[in-house]
Design a protein around this nucleic acid. Structure first.
Length: 105
DNA sequence: CGTATGACAACAA
DNA sequence: ATTGTTGCCATAC
């Protein structure tokens, strides 16, 4: 493997933070990026999440946008809603109560 | 090397 | 509350 990977280090950092998000809590894309060492790179967080394998064990569903809404196209949005509800996070009118479930270490 | 794109966010009106 | 604009960072072409 003489090839060199460009951003596996950054990906690792995102995944490490992602894995730390407690069950029943959520963070925004901006939060995730900042905790991973990329402040103001919310869109990058989305790119990383999008690349995750479909069978990942990481809690990708605990990441939502700053408005408390799901930023995912159907049918994955439905899966995210289900996973959130399984953790006791209800969506009221399509929104998560950030004041209540936002993770702040 | 310039442009367009995206699981975003902050701000102006 | 809603819509439009601008800023952000890495990728894809």
């Amino acid at each position: 493997m003489g090839t060199y990977n460009r951003d596996n280090d950054a990906i690792s950092r995102f995944c490490r933070v992602l894995a730390e998000i407690p069950r029943g809590q959520v963070v925004t894309y901006g939060d995730l990026a900042e905790m991973a060492g990329y402040p103001r790179a919310a869109r990058l967080a989305g790119q990383v999440l999008r690349r995750l394998p479909g069978d990942t064990k990481l809690p990708w569903h605990r990441v939502i946008n700053a408005q408390g809404r799901i930023s995912l196209p159907e049918p994955r949005a439905q899966r995210q809603r289900e996973r959130l509800e399984c953790e006791g996070i209800a969506l009221i009118k399509g929104r998560v109560d950030m004041g209540k479930y936002r993770w702040q270490p």
